[in-house]
Design a protein around this nucleic acid. Structure first.
Lengths: 108, 108
DNA sequence: CCACTATATTACCACATAGTCATGGAGCAG
DNA sequence: CTGCTCCATGACTATGTGGTAATATAGTGG
């Protein structure tokens, strides 16, 4: 494992932070099926064009997605499906969380 | 895998966001060896007491750490070592990133 | 009760971020 | 060239976040 120096903590935190936004997660989800243009992604996620474009820059900079330009349209795609492994890991935590909440509700 | 509904995207994003801060990553790293008190963590991470305490609340609320009170001191510990699996995954990305940067530097 | 220690919480400030609107640039059809 | 489409970027605002200092809470020993 990479040593968690101060500089590395900064890098790793930024990688996590890039995944810490619902819109960006939905973008990744939408890209799961394959390459998509910005317009398609805006439509599928229900976000504004500018907003989607900016979020894609974040994912691009962190290397989660890749871009291919064709004419005036930009095609984005997942670079490393490993990102979904991480989603599954936190989803595990999510299921526990939901279980905990269901318990709490039952207790009342 | 959990369906990525709007509500779930929110939950998952918050779990990622909790890991998206250098101080919180250093706290988890410091807890890797075992249980630690807030004071110990403040000393090891070089953070202020109030700040460390607040970050620990975030990790606690997201279920990454657990707390045990003994007298006036609170002992925190990792609840699920799975979190380090995630760190290793993003560290993989980090190594690629560093590799990319080294290449860029060599190119000059 | 008093002082001391350890932690949590509050108030506050500086700064970052998400969202939207408007604009700019670049390809493409006519 | 003109107009159109698609995307990126900048300005702006509202909201969120990290850090710190001060205060509150609570246990402990005298």
């Amino acid at each position: 494992m990479v040593e968690l120096s101060e500089a590395n903590a900064q890098f790793i935190a930024e990688r996590f932070k890039a995944l810490g936004d619902p819109m960006r997660l939905r973008l990744l989800q939408a890209l799961r099926a394959g390459e998509r243009s910005v317009g398609e992604l805006a439509e599928r996620t229900g976000g504004g064009q500018a907003n989607v474009s900016k979020h894609l820059q974040v994912l691009l900079q962190q290397g989660y997605v890749d871009r291919r330009k064709e004419g005036t349209t930009s095609w984005y795609r997942i670079t490393d499906p490993e990102v979904f492994t991480m989603c599954n890991l936190v989803c595990g935590g999510l299921e526990e969380e939901l279980g905990r909440k269901r318990k709490l509700l039952r207790r009342r």
